[in-house]
Design a protein around this nucleic acid. Structure first.
Lengths: 244, 244
DNA sequence: TCCATACTTCGTTGCCCAACGAAGCATGAA
DNA sequence: TTCATGCTTCGTTGGGCAACGAAGTATGGA
């Protein structure tokens, strides 16, 4: 059965589409590259040497991988002196990776019933919070009608209500500044451990920043894990009505 | 540099997670497999011979690919006499593929400004409608408050309102039957050509079925394209208030 | 019973690409 | 200037895997 010449495909063939899709998927799929991407999922930029160590390959190999990821537009690079900082190209990429994680998690579950406890409870996802706490936070924001769905603004987008605005400003979060950023304000991001949505976007980022500066949570230096402090627990209960 | 035995990793290592993710991505990424998966995105089950022809490989090669996709749990197979019907494992897989399409589309746009017209306007996505018409339909359902967001039921889930129920039953859609199915009722699915949500789930499937049986749209036999009939255009305008 | 069809399994071939070390090229410090 | 550091480019090697044809196993019809 010969590969048919597939005659009339003048300008835009469906071929084009799936070839690109192919490229992206294989770019993600190579194990060393997968590790790099998953590491970058916490939103921190890293140098190629760091990424080489994390992926367990030599710098030269890492360099080749990073080039390929850049060509497929999955990551971007920022030169700074003699360092080159690599980071995910955008939230879309982060979401795709989390989505892949959901499928991978679905497979794992059969074999490994429990996910790593620390990551499960609270972790960063790109530049916002994920894990049970983040999901609870997301649900609370909707239950209290501090956020409402805003579908015309895109899939799973949210807008802040009047009461939401009050709550956020009482916390000390500068909503106007978040709105001014050239990025989406708030939207649902699928959580791979909970398989439920948590909060992403400018607001999600502001909330993480707030939680970190107010010492509600403490970042782990090597992983994406966050640990909730006693203070954070108290404050989330009193200010947001969250129970744990 | 060998993959290190990774000593202390008793039960659930992060290694495990990204190795699985890797497997899934590479399974999707091989060009022949990508073509097969994208073809199955219309929700139709196909035999391995058909898929072999579509992917432009011999049956023996196709068989190997299909086995691999089955092992990674991306597709399922149903034996029926001497035919074996392959289909996507579930909506999660379909959504992942559409999501990948968004990223691929994002790349394409720079080089190929226009997407194939027929597919852009209306096509199937798994078992429901996609394309500009489907997105318009989705927006109309929300604008008229026939559907409302229902986040606790999962990311981007919708529920049917009282007025939505009336509208749907007036059309002749059996909402009770759709509810009775063991699947999610209605949720937003990201559209790769529009980069906006359209309607998926039991309700989305019911709407496509309705549109086909009422001859509002006609399926193309080889591609995922749908063409809107004059009748469909009239009916959607009068019954649902859609303008084109 | 015999053959055709649908599909898989097996064994071989060939190619792509990940991996490395060495060498090259910047940047910044001494 | 000279050297160290951070990173890339180059050329080579090797292993994994996609592809095929041929042979094998079901199923269903003649």
């Amino acid at each position: 059965m010969r590969p048919l010449p597939s005659a009339g495909n003048p300008i835009h063939s469906p071929i084009r589409e799936d070839a690109l899709l192919s490229k992206i998927a294989t770019a993600i799929g190579e194990p060393a590259r997968t590790r790099m991407l998953l590491t970058l999922l916490d939103g921190h930029a890293r140098t190629s040497t760091e990424l080489a160590a994390l992926a367990e390959v030599t710098p030269s190999t890492a360099s080749a991988h990073l080039n390929r990821l850049r060509e497929t537009r999955l990551i971007r690079v920022a030169a700074q002196g003699r360092h080159r900082y690599y980071s995910l190209r955008g939230p879309e990429v982060a979401r795709l990776l989390e989505h892949l994680g959901v499928l991978a998690g679905g497979i794992t579950k059969k074999f490994v019933p429990s996910t790593p406890a620390a990551l499960h409870k609270a972790r960063t996802c790109y530049d916002h919070m994920a894990g049970t706490i983040a999901v609870a936070l997301h649900d609370q924001f909707l239950r209290e009608r501090w956020l409402i769905a805003d579908p015309p603004a895109g899939i799973d987008a949210y807008n802040i209500t009047r009461s939401g605005l009050k709550t956020l400003e009482r916390l000390g979060i500068d909503v106007a500044a978040a709105r001014a950023l050239r990025r989406r304000l708030a939207y649902a991001c699928l959580d791979w451990s909970e398989r439920r949505p948590h909060l992403a976007g400018a607001l999600g980022a502001a909330l993480l920043q707030h939680a970190v500066t107010k010492k509600w949570v403490v970042r782990d230096l090597n992983t994406r894990a966050l640990s909730l402090t006693k203070l954070g627990e108290r404050e989330m209960a009193s200010q947001l009505g969250l129970k744990f």
